[in-house]
């Protein structure tokens, strides 16, 4: 029975556009879904490798900007005297470009940032997102700076005559759901593979993992590349749905939203970001519906964050698992270590 539950859940979600006519609810579901995809990718770093990256929104934003720019076309000086001109590309190609750009940045940053750990890593990751934001803000020739990239085209698939347009909300919703399911499957395969066990091993005890021959940095970089590619995909979806991208997309508060989704749901569990994402995706709307002054909404949000951490320090999903003893079986750290060491030899 429990085995079929996830499939039934996905089927139910897939049926939503068939009976849901309220555009506003679809809008909330779409934006929540996009953030859940981003939160799932963050969970790979935060939950499975134990690295607290607070710059994750950078990959989301890079995916959004790269995809938007490729679909709109641009002309910019990459270096003095070196003018790069790109003609508008089809949206599906632009989105793949966005994902690739995010992955490449993930590789570079992974190589750089994993020279440090702990509190330092946290600040380095924030700095990275901040630098990207300031570049987006000031490189007006390329990004239009604070004027934002406007009129980004929506995704269209298929040839003339048989065209599939993702402009209307039910279609966008279906697309977001498909990407979310794909990302979920990808992440599950990764964390259940040998590479995934190595990641968990180094989360549990990094020095021990190193001593049995696990190339810690290589696995961390791998996790970062996959996580940033998925975050980039979420960003690309966002850009072609909202159809505007501005430098505020790199704001720290979006990273905070992703982190709180992961932690509330339960980091290091596959279902965690989804549960947390649904909760914190719908929360701002419910606060807004209570007709409170905006400052009070924010205060409530902040206080709720503190309370969640106090009362559910490990998250909702592990708490449920403990109570009913069901759900994902997590292998013991020692076993992870042994498997990972075997993978090396």
């Amino acid at each position: 029975m429990t085995r079929w539950l996830p499939h039934l859940f996905v089927l139910f979600l897939a049926s939503v556009p068939l009976w849901m006519t309220d555009n506003y609810i679809l809008h909330i579901l779409i934006t929540t879904g996009i953030f859940i995809i981003a939160a799932m990718s963050l969970n790979l770093l935060l939950g499975y490798t134990g690295q607290l990256s607070l710059g994750h929104v950078a990959f989301f934003g890079i995916g959004a900007y790269a995809s938007a720019l490729l679909s709109l076309g641009f002309e910019a000086h990459i270096a003095p005297g070196l003018l790069v001109k790109v003609l508008p590309k089809p949206v599906w190609f632009a989105m793949l470009g966005g994902i690739a750009s995010a992955a490449v940045c993930g590789y570079a940053i992974g190589k750089l940032a994993f020279r440090v750990r702990g509190a330092y890593f946290v600040i380095v990751s924030i700095s990275f997102a901040e630098v990207v934001r300031l570049v987006a803000l000031n490189w007006v020739e390329l990004t239009q700076g604070p004027m934002a990239l406007n009129n980004i085209p929506a995704l269209k698939l298929g040839a003339a005559g048989l065209e599939l347009s993702f402009l209307k909300k039910p279609m966008v919703y279906t697309l977001v759901l498909a990407v979310a399911v794909l990302s979920y499957v990808l992440i599950r395969r990764l964390v259940q593979s040998r590479a995934g066990r190595a990641m968990i091993a180094l989360r549990e005890n990094e020095s021990l993992a190193t001593s049995v021959g696990i190339d810690v940095t290589a696995y961390l970089v791998l996790a970062t590349v996959v996580a940033s590619a998925i975050a980039g995909a979420a960003g690309a979806l966002y850009a072609h749905y909202v159809r505007i991208v501005d430098p505020d997309i790199f704001l720290f508060i979006y990273t905070v939203t992703m982190v709180i989704m992961v932690v509330t749901g339960g980091k290091g569990t596959l279902a965690g970001p989804i549960v947390g994402g649904v909760l914190f995706g719908l929360l701002p709307e419910s606060l807004r519906a209570m007709a409170m002054p905006p400052e009070v909404q924010w205060i409530a949000y902040g206080v709720l964050m503190v309370l969640v951490v106090y009362f559910l320090p490990r998250g909702i999903v592990p708490a449920i698992n403990e109570r009913w003893g069901a759900g994902e079986a997590t292998a013991s750290p020692l076993r992870n270590l042994v498997v990972a060491a075997k993978a090396r030899s």
Binding site: D22, N23, Y24, H27, T31, A148, V242, I244, D246, D248, I249, L251, R288, P294
Partner: peptide, 17 residues
């Protein structure tokens, strides 16, 4: 919230809800 993306959200809410 002084933020272009949020501005789009408010218009979604006002026109659709």
């Amino acid at each position: 919230k002084s933020n272009p993306t949020e501005a789009v959200s408010t218009v979604e809410k006002l026109t659709q809800k």
